[in-house]
Design a protein around this nucleic acid. Structure first.
Lengths: 340, 340
DNA sequence: TGAAATAATGTAAACGGTTACAGTAAACGG
DNA sequence: CCGTTTACTGTAACCGTTTACATTATTTCA
């Protein structure tokens, strides 16, 4: 067999420097002493030959990839920028690589998850594509994972990083009711099984209940936490004559709030006079929307950073370590009816 | 040596199915016929054993990684969401993986690029961290690359995907001058050597020149195409008493425009009456800023998609194929002074 | 000073796949 | 009916590292 590879290998370096490959490997990984003399020679030879270790070979031999994966449902939301930013910063500092992949519940049938133990050392799981059973299997095999914006299935104890949703949503919706006298509050929810969406819906309902407002199924729309879908859905709702009255919209996230605002605009509803709008996340543009968006500030970059740090802790010391819930805070702006 | 690996290998599958590893490999890769009988048996055994091929081993043996890399300067801009989205969609369809890494000119001293021929099959280069010399070396070695928002160094012919900047900027700035009578237009530029920024500056200058307005060095600020930096810089500019008068701001990108608007707001300048603002990119939130942002629509998701498609073409057929420049279009909204 | 630890290096067996090469049996073509 | 494809399968070398084990020279120290 005549396999040809143009790339220079560790053997070339070893030969050129007159040492064994083991010594070169040790020098590269600094995991055993190498004489000063040899070290210098190797440095020289390596730059001269432009030697770069072959990642796959290292991975195979060492059974590490130096890659961590981030599994998302999709990339249709500005929300992911701060999240990615937090993740990437930590990954870079650790001199690891980051694989970003999308995978959601519906793609399960077609394909297995694109990233996992076979090509990463650990996973940051945002996606709902990995169902509880998958998580259980991976966890049982000792594969390091940290859940993001999602909590561990019962009796599995996978570490997670989330933000506080229910309490804050309750308070914000209650604000709409008590301060601004809104009683017909539409909820533009996210993906059906996404925890943030579920929790925000819970907070929404509990605020209604606490204030004697009956829950109306008709006032819940599926915006998928996506700008375009939220627009579409609300637009249809407003167009399709049914004319269910509402005087406020709680949009599960800021990005979808843009779609909501667009639909309201196009149907000549004034915000907040006719319809108040509130969001969630406090994305960078929220203060500059028209009107400025009342929302909940979620520390998204911190979520990414902390989740990644915990994943690295797990890599070094495979001891599970609970759930962290980061605090959130309401930011009042004009879209709810508050004065500028 | 006693190496232990808990994972099931191709040999386990082969033994269990009573065939050779070669047959299993062929079945997995579907690159040679396998009898129906064996195929079924393998399917069964593989799911039973939960066999997943080990990526590193495949990579090593096949000398392919099935990974493409996206190299960015940073992730501090909502602009990257549509870009990433376009890239990721194509990568997923091809059943490849995507490594996202940041690397910029200043990190060169500290580290080599985190991704390259050693861990990817090809690169989408947005970053300025890879200087012309690096590109030349990589290109000479036949490594597939596509430049994004950046054109090929002279006589290198690396494929690139960019958007039209100069002409459109010229027209937009001229609009500010001729229609809205602005004559002191501040330019909030991006990173010094970023081509979009350079070209937008060229369009800005040519519009000034074409309309008899002298270029004033003092009216150029470095906002780095980052929201927070743009805010900081303009805020300082407005605070530091120097009181250089201006009646408009051309912000090199929409994300930075948010920072600009914030600074203007805080200093009680009305937009567009006192100061007009125009951006670039037409990010999703642009129509909903207060006031709605006049900007240039750039097909960012298409840039990501097309660049990635071209990279895959390159993988299959290493023939260089020029530069594509996608058209852009001005979107007039209120921030420039146009009526709603 | 002799035993034990340490430093520096080499040899060669993995790691888990792919694939060139070879072989056998069945199908085809004239 | 026989030479030639074609379908299918197996053997084993190889991809480029890491690392267990072995070896020798040098320190350390009781």
């Amino acid at each position: 067999m005549t396999r040809r590879s143009s790339s220079v290998t560790i053997r070339d370096v070893a030969r050129q420097a007159g040492v064994s490959v083991a010594t070169v490997s040790r020098f590269i990984n600094r995991n055993a002493p190498v004489s000063a003399e040899v070290a210098e020679r190797l440095n020289q030879v390596m730059t001269e030959l432009r030697y770069v270790p072959h990642a796959a070979a290292r991975n195979l031999a060492s059974r590490k990839t130096r890659v961590i994966g981030l599994l998302l449902n999709n990339l249709h939301n500005d929300f992911f920028v701060p999240l990615l930013n937090g993740v990437e910063a930590v990954v870079r500092k650790k001199e690891y690589n980051l694989i970003v992949a999308t995978y959601h519940a519906n793609s399960r049938n077609a394909m297995p998850p694109p990233i996992g133990p076979h090509n990463t050392d650990g996973l940051l799981v945002f996606s709902d594509g990995l169902v509880d059973e998958d998580l259980a299997n991976l966890n049982a095999s000792g594969f390091p994972m940290v859940l993001v914006h999602r909590t561990s299935p019962k009796n599995l104890e996978i570490p997670s990083v989330t933000v506080e949703n229910i309490e804050i949503t309750h308070r914000l919706v209650e604000h709409l009711i008590r301060i601004h006298g809104k009683h017909r509050i539409l909820f533009m929810r996210g993906p059906l099984h996404q925890e943030d969406s579920v929790r925000r819906e819970a907070g929404y309902k509990s605020a209604l209940a606490a204030n004697g407002i009956p829950f109306d199924e008709e006032l819940v729309l599926n915006g998928e936490f996506e700008r375009d879908i939220a627009f579409q859905v609300l637009n249809d709702f407003l167009s399709n004559g049914k004319h269910v009255a509402f005087d406020a919209v709680f949009t599960g996230d800021d990005d979808a709030a843009i779609g909501v605002m667009k639909a309201l605009h196009e149907h000549k509803h004034r915000i907040p006079e006719d319809v108040a709008v509130i969001g969630f996340d406090d994305l960078g543009f929220a203060p500059f929307l028209n009107p400025p968006l009342t929302t909940v500030r979620a520390p998204t970059e911190s979520v990414g950073r902390i989740a990644t740090e915990r994943l690295f802790e797990l890599l070094e010391n495979p001891a599970s370590n609970g759930a962290v819930v980061l605090p959130t805070e309401i930011i009042f702006r004009r879209s709810c009816g508050c004065p500028a």
